[in-house]
């Protein structure tokens, strides 16, 4: 857990967040500070410790393959920032 400078622009791209130059500076500094604190974890001897993803152990929670009612389309589309007929409309997708 060495302290390193974060490539904040790369992270922001992954997170789909447009940042101003000021934000890049501020967040970059704040995140580095936080990582500094977080690096305290490297003092823990955790080699042989199992990771906890869920604290209450439960297994195989599933549902039967039985249909349930769907939402009313008009109600859903009424919330759409932009719709066209029965569809959600989005700007041009750049193939990636």
């Amino acid at each position: 857990m060495a302290s390193e400078t974060i490539d904040i622009r790369y992270v922001a791209k992954l997170a789909a967040l447009a940042l101003t130059d000021d934000e890049v500076e501020t967040f970059g500094r704040q995140l580095s500070d936080l990582l500094e604190h977080v690096n305290a974890l490297s003092r823990l001897d955790i080699e042989s410790v199992a990771a906890t993803a869920q604290v209450v152990e439960s297994r195989n929670v599933m549902r039967e393959d039985t249909p349930r009612p769907c939402l009313d389309r008009e109600r859903v589309l009424a919330e759409a920032p932009q719709r066209q007929g029965a569809f959600f409309r989005v700007p041009r997708i750049i193939a990636e």
Binding site: R63, T66, P67, R68, P69, C70, L71, R73, V76, L77, G85, A86, F87, F88
Partner: peptide, 19 residues
């Protein structure tokens, strides 16, 4: 619990979960 069927009227087989 939305039905799994091919095609159909657009955006009719949707619920809070799959949306």
């Amino acid at each position: 619990g939305c039905v799994n069927e091919f095609g159909g009227e657009p955006n009719t087989k949707i619920c809070p979960v799959c949306l």
